[in-house]
Nucleic acid binder design. Structure first.
Length: 146
DNA sequence: GCCAACGTTGGC
DNA sequence: GCCAACGTTGGC
């Protein structure tokens, strides 16, 4: 079981779009970075990920669940690129902003802070739980992956 | 809209 | 295999 963070620009594909896909979710396409791809390849069905709005909003706004393993990305013929499938699990009652994360010493080691351009990244279980609580979830969901 | 950081590409 | 050029990301 593991935790992750997925970034998306909300004017391209935001939380509302993810919600609209329903329980089946949708393919997380468009990743063209090896580190990000490798993170997706390491995901298991049932793993959970923070859904982060980059550029506009700049906040963690919800939690998604991995519903299918990494598979070839249908948006390219290039065989190097993969995508997982994720479905919305629940929103954060109160989004946790990048500014708040940066102002929280316990979260200073997050890749979001240290490697700000990485679009798919692993998240420490303690960091995941803390952000959930900061977002108003008294009982953070637990990864069922692996 | 700007610009710094950084990943990728391609010439050598 | 090095490295300069270039493109993209994403915070500000």
């Amino acid at each position: 079981m593991a935790y992750w963070l997925l970034k998306s620009e909300p004017d391209t594909f935001g939380w509302d779009h993810q919600l609209a896909l329903g329980a089946g979710g949708g393919a997380w396409t468009g990743v063209r970075n090896y580190q990000a791809r490798n993170a997706m390849r390491a995901m298991q069905v049932g793993d959970l990920a923070l859904f982060y709005h980059s550029n506009i909003g700049k906040a963690v706004v919800g939690i998604v669940r991995v519903t299918a393993l990494s598979a070839p990305d249908p948006t390219t013929d290039d065989p190097r690129w993969d995508c997982v499938t994720v479905a919305a699990l629940m929103p954060l009652p109160q989004p946790v902003s990048l500014a708040t994360i940066k102002a929280t010493p316990a979260l200073a080691e997050m890749a979001l802070v240290k490697a700000p351009r990485l679009s798919v990244q692993p998240v420490d279980p303690a960091h995941f739980a803390l952000i959930c609580r900061m977002g108003g979830l008294m009982h953070p969901p637990v990864s069922q992956g692996g």
